[in-house]
Simulated scan of single mutants.
Amino acid sequence: MLISIFFSCLTSVIYSAEEVNYQPFELDKLLHEISEPGEPKITDEYIIFTADKKYANVGIAFSHENYKKVHSFSVFSRNNEDNIKSRQFLFYCYKREHKLTELNYRLVIDGIWTSDPLNSNTYYDDNMNLYFSKVEDARSIIVRTAPINSEYVRFIYKGQSNLKLYLSGTFTSWDPWIYQMKETQPGLYEFELPLPSGKYYYNYYEGLKPLTDNTNLDKVYTADGRTFSVLVVP
């Protein structure tokens, strides 16, 4: 089944390595730190895959997408000694989710499916008779309350295990019993809530005890000594 998906992708997906003129500042900084293509570069926010500039087209497909979609690599260039823009390497940036523990993938290099020749972490699947590449990262990852897309905000709290926490704020008229946080990992509590653009004040509640968001440094302090977390949704 997986092999048939590979071959269907070859005939149905068109991709090319294109020049990228803009990327977020942090990503641009990371790309400029890469002197040559090599092993995947892993940070708290990104995994950057690179490929040799000699290839015309490179794509990447992931196991969590059942290898049905091939994502195109882009071209990274920098000015040489003569101040002429020179093609340095190809890259694809994967913006990582905070729960990611490993990422399995294959490349399509100039139309040929293959494991990543620059990643030493490969494994052989006996059932598929194919080599796959893998990224593993055991480091802790920054987890914080933040919008996850144009509609939803993921609220995060870090604390002791087995707490019964509720989320309350101006979006609930301060009713502390509507949204119960879910403990997704020991001591890590999450809740996703659709919120329109605006400025919100909120806290977590253990019973009637208020707890400010310890992943969000933005706070407001009232004249009577209370503290609330502040979130701005763009």
Rank of each mutant, 00 (worst) to 15 (best):
M1W: 10
L2V: 11
I3E: 07
F6R: 09
S12N: 05
S12F: 00
S12D: 05
I14P: 00
Y15L: 09
E19P: 00
P24S: 06
F25D: 11
F25Y: 07
L27A: 11
D28H: 11
K29Q: 13
E33S: 15
E36G: 11
P37F: 05
G38C: 11
G38I: 10
D44L: 00
I47A: 12
I47P: 02
I47Y: 08
F49V: 01
K53M: 12
K53T: 10
K54M: 09
N57R: 15
A61F: 00
S63F: 07
V70N: 03
S72M: 02
F73N: 07
V75A: 10
I84Y: 06
R87C: 03
R87N: 14
E97S: 11
L100F: 08
L100S: 08
Y105W: 02
R106S: 04
R106V: 12
L107H: 03
T114Y: 07
S115M: 05
T122M: 12
T122Y: 04
N129D: 12
N129E: 14
L130W: 13
L130H: 05
F132K: 02
S133D: 06
E136C: 12
A138E: 15
R144N: 12
R144M: 07
Y152C: 03
R154F: 01
R154M: 09
F155Y: 04
G159V: 00
L165M: 04
Y166K: 07
Y166L: 01
L167K: 03
S168K: 07
S168A: 15
S168C: 05
T170I: 06
P176F: 00
P176W: 00
W177L: 02
T184A: 04
Q185W: 02
L188Q: 11
Y189P: 11
E192M: 13
G198P: 14
Y200K: 08
Y202L: 05
Y202T: 11
N203M: 09
Y204P: 01
Y204T: 02
E206S: 10
G207F: 02
L208R: 09
K209M: 04
L211R: 05
T212P: 08
D213Y: 09
T215R: 04
L217D: 13
D218N: 15
K219E: 13
K219P: 09
V220A: 10
Y221V: 13
G225E: 08
T227V: 15
F228Q: 14
S229D: 02
S229L: 07
V230F: 08
V232A: 13
V233R: 15
P234V: 06
